[in-house]
Design a protein around this nucleic acid. Structure first.
Length: 580
DNA sequence: GCCGTTTTCGGCCCGACTGTTTTCAGTCG
């Protein structure tokens, strides 16, 4: 079993323990172990036979090592099975609703025998929550909205989950001789935040009509398949253990480009493209672009051929949403979209001084290895007590250490001192101005403000960015996809003021918290609001998540010029709001 | 349940915020 699945089982056990009001420290151990398994570079299944080796991983002790061995052997662990006798697996789903924690899940179960999102929805509709302690009108309304939102998104997976699943499957398919080109299409290729299912296109000599059956059989034998839905001439559909549905299509080389174009979508883009084809006497299908009158082949081997035959420049998949990209492709005015290699620095990251995993030096080395020219270390401030946030004294001491590391790196990479401060309930920043004055990068973070009316929220954020030391507004929408609704914040007003003040807007690149939607990003550009795309890395390995942020920027038509951290170090600092 | 040591057990990141409380529980990061 892969690390992620093991981590998931441990984490589920922690959730179940919490619902059963188990020992909080024991619960934390399971959570820590889950995190350790997820973030370690060691492949757990490879060393599962050796309890000693397992215990070398920090956070894994004797008991946890034995739990992991049980997981490898049986696919579960005794404690989890035991708890699942008492509670239902669907209760874990309830925890995903905003405002729902283990105590509420336990309460609903004990008082109402409600154990799933559907049952909760029915209970709310029937007014059965009214007599419950702690549940007044507002709480019930919040839950109702939360369920609505959850249902809208459920069934979809975050892009990184989709991408990982795709990469594994592609690696498997590559083992089969004669499959030369294997590529994901659909929303994964378009770089959407979430994917509903995976479309994988395959071609090569082994996909020729008389040979394809062997490749189809091989695909259908992919070990992680939980449920094979269909196996036909050139298509295999299945559901993975994770619940993700996958469609693999094996196509002859001549129609590969047509298929890629067709299955990449989006639907609206394809409708427009096909209309355009018809106007020119062509018809476009997933097999080819052909003449309407005699059906003769025009193009199909590559996407470029097809677009060119329609007098269009090739359109990057991220733009294919029928938002003017076809007109731009016709006129030759498609933007040169930002690329990952344009990014020169990542200016929001944490170290083990607070809740990060690595030292300043380790973060700097990892960033250097990625080819960055600079980073900013922005650990948490004291308000986030749970992260061991820095008070003024510790923050200043941290600045000193960051400067030391900066010197140690001898110019190979710059390491800027910074901090991620919280915006408090009154719009104040939780550290003194004298402390902030020592920082190159002050990220004022919205993420601790919750559940507030839109006006109040907006007012506090506006107040916070008036602080002259604040240079970047962090987590501007506090958006955690599939988990919570976006903050109620008057974003245009905030962006307008940020633009006036020269405060940059952060776009968090992390897949589950891509802060700004395509629309938000376009709006920022329109309003002249500067954008910095950061990973908020808590571990050296998190820096690679930058690519998801870049995809999102591309979807919003942004170019290198629209993003601050494509600038060299000095210009980057100069482009931020001037310090008092 | 882990860790570190005091080698056998005690300590383990906690403060803000909300809604429903009439003094606080639950959730969040």
């Amino acid at each position: 079993m892969d690390n992620r699945s093991i981590a998931q089982l441990l984490s589920e056990t922690a959730d179940l323990l919490e619902i059963s009001s188990g020992d909080p420290f024991r619960i934390r151990s399971y959570r820590r172990a889950a995190e350790a398994v997820e973030s370690t570079t060691v492949q757990i299944s490879a060393i599962a036979g050796d309890a000693k080796k397992l215990q070398e991983i920090p956070g894994i002790g004797k008991g946890m090592a034995s739990n992991i061995q049980d997981i490898e052997k049986t696919g579960s662990l005794p404690l989890r099975d035991e708890l699942l006798q008492k509670y239902k697996p669907t209760m874990l789903e309830l925890l995903k609703l905003p405002g729902m924690g283990p105590k509420s899940v336990a309460l609903f179960w004990e008082a109402l025998q409600v154990a799933s999102v559907d049952e909760l929805e029915a209970a709310i509709a029937a007014g059965r929550l009214k007599d419950l302690p702690r549940f007044g009108e507002k709480q019930i309304e919040k839950l109702r909205k939360g369920i609505e939102d959850y249902k809208k998104n459920s069934g979809r997976f975050l892009i990184d989950t989709g991408e990982e699943a795709a990469e594994k499957l592609i690696a498997y398919l590559r083992e089969f001789p004669g499959l030369t080109t294997i590529q994901p299409a659909g929303s994964l290729r378009r770089g959407r935040e979430t994917v509903g299912d995976l479309d994988i296109l395959v071609t090569g000599p082994a996909c020729a009509e008389d040979k394809v059956q062997a490749a189809v059989d091989y695909t259908a034998a992919y070990p992680p398949i939980a449920n094979l839905i269909a196996k036909g001439q050139n298509k295999v559909s299945f559901i993975l253990r994770s619940g993700l549905q996958v469609d693999v299509r094996l196509l002859p080389e001549a129609s590969y480009g047509a298929a890629l174009q067709y299955f990449t979508g989006s639907k609206m883009h394809n409708v427009s493209i096909r209309q355009r084809a018809l106007k020119r006497g062509y018809t476009l299908s997933e097999y080819a672009l052909a003449k309407v009158d005699d059906g003769s082949f025009v193009a199909g081997a590559t996407e470029e051929d097809i677009y060119a035959a329609l007098s269009l420049a090739w359109i990057p998949p991220e733009l294919r949403e029928n938002n003017g990209e076809i007109e731009a492709a016709e006129k030759g005015t498609l933007p040169k979209l930002i690329e990952q290699s344009d990014i020169r620095g990542d200016v929001h990251m944490h170290t083990n001084a607070t809740d990060g995993r690595n030292t300043i030096r380790e973060m700097a080395e990892a960033a250097l290895a990625r080819g960055y020219e600079y980073i900013a270390i922005t650990d948490h401030s004291k308000n986030l007590a749970m992260t061991n946030g820095l008070d003024d004294a510790r923050a200043l001491e941290h600045v000193r250490r960051i400067r030391e590391v900066d010197a140690e790196m001898e110019g190979r990479i710059r390491v800027f001192p910074g901090i991620e401060v919280d915006i408090l309930g009154d719009g104040e920043i939780d550290l003194a101005d004298e402390t902030l004055a020592q920082m190159d990068v002050v990220v004022a973070s919205v993420h601790t403000l919750f559940n507030q009316p839109r006006e109040q929220m907006t007012e506090r954020v506006l107040r916070a960015i008036e602080n002259p030391y604040v240079r970047i507004l962090g987590h501007p929408t506090g958006r955690l996809l599939l988990r919570r609704e976006p903050f109620e914040l008057d974003l245009p007003t905030v962006m307008r003021r940020a633009a006036e003040l020269g405060v940059a807007m952060e776009h968090n690149a992390y897949p589950d918290r891509l802060d700004l939607s395509d629309r938000d990003l376009r709006l920022a550009k329109e309003l002249g609001c500067k954008i910095s795309v950061n990973t908020d890395s808590h571990h050296t390995s998190h820096m690679e998540k930058m690519r998801y942020g870049i995809r999102q920027l591309r979807r919003a038509w942004l170019t290198k010029e629209d993003v601050l951290n494509t600038l060299p170090a000095k210009q980057f600092l100069a482009a931020l709001r001037p310090r008092p």
